[in-house]
Design a protein around this nucleic acid. Structure first.
Lengths: 124, 124
DNA sequence: CTAAAACCTGACGTTGGCGTCAAGGGCAAG
DNA sequence: CTTGCCCTTGACGCCAACGTCAGGTTTTAG
C-alpha cells in the first residue's frame, strides 16, 4: 500500500504518517524511487498509535512501547513504563467519569426549570 | 482571598487564574489598588474549569457552560452544547477504556515470557 | 505521449494553555 | 523606614502534532 491509501484507510493525513516515521513510530519499505510502501498491518498500527496519542501519551512514550512489542523483549524499564501509563489512563478514566456525571447533573437541572432556579450557582 | 491563596488551594498557578479571567471563565473583585479578590467558591470553580480542560473542552466551550450556569438560564443552544460535550466525553471514556484493556493484554504478555514470544507483533 | 494525480524533501506556520521574564506598585513586620 | 514578599500589566517563549506551501520527481489514466 502507498502512503495515501494507508492514510485514507486509517483516517489520518499522509503528513501524519511521515511524521510518525520521523518519530520512529512507523517504518516503511522504500521503493527505488524513494516512495514509501506499507504492509496491510500498517493501518492497524496507525490506529493504535492514534489511540495512544488520544490517551495522552507522548511520541517518546509511544516509541518505547512500539520498540518493546516490536522486538518481543520487555525490559524492566519497559514493564514499569507500561504499568505507569496504564495507571495514568485508569486515573484519567475515573476523572472523566466524574466530570461526565457532574455534567449530567447540570443537564438535568437545565432540563428542569424549577431545579435550574433552585440550583443557581450549584456547581460553578 | 488573594490570587496566590486561591491558586495554591486549587493547585494551579496565579498565571493560570489571570488567564482564566482573560478568557472570561473567572471573575474577580478588584481592590482599590487593582489587586484581585476572590470568594471561597472560586477554588471549586477553578477545579471545575480544570476538570473541563482535562475533558478536552476548549476555553470557548467552557465559557458557554459557565455563562449558562451563572445566569441560571439555559437556552436551547446551551442545552445542545451540554449534550454534545457530554456525548464527546462519554465516547472518550469508552475509547480510553478500550485502550487500557489492550494495554492490559500487552502487559500480561510482557509479564509472561512464553506469551511474549508467542504474541510477537500481536497488537502492534 | 501527455496531463493529472500522487509522491518526495525541506522548511516555516498554527494553536492552546499556560511559563517566564521585565519593570514597577503596595503593604505588614521588625 | 525598609526589607521582602505578593501583586499588577505586558509581552515574548514553549511544545507537540501536525498543516501548509514551495519546488521538484514519479506514477498512472486516458
Amino acid at each position: 500500500m502507498r502512503i495515501g491509501e494507508v492514510a485514507a484507510a486509517a483516517g489520518v493525513s499522509p503528513r501524519a504518517l511521515r511524521y510518525y516515521e520521523e518519530q520512529g513510530l512507523l517504518t516503511s519499505q522504500r521503493h527505488a524511487s524513494g516512495q514509501r510502501h506499507y504492509g496491510q498491518d500498517a493501518v492497524q498500527r496507525v490506529r493504535w498509535i492514534q489511540a495512544l496519542y488520544a490517551a495522552g501519551l507522548s511520541s517518546k512514550s509511544i516509541t518505547g512501547l512500539v520498540g518493546c512489542v516490536h522486538t518481543g523483549v520487555a525490559t524492566d524499564a519497559m514493564r514499569a513504563q507500561l504499568a505507569a501509563e496504564r495507571e495514568r489512563i485508569d486515573t484519567q478514566i475515573r476523572d472523566l467519569t466524574h466530570t461526565r456525571d457532574r455534567l449530567d447533573a447540570i443537564i438535568a437541572a437545565a432540563d428542569d426549570p424549577d431545579r435550574m432556579r433552585a440550583s443557581s450557582g450549584c456547581e460553578l
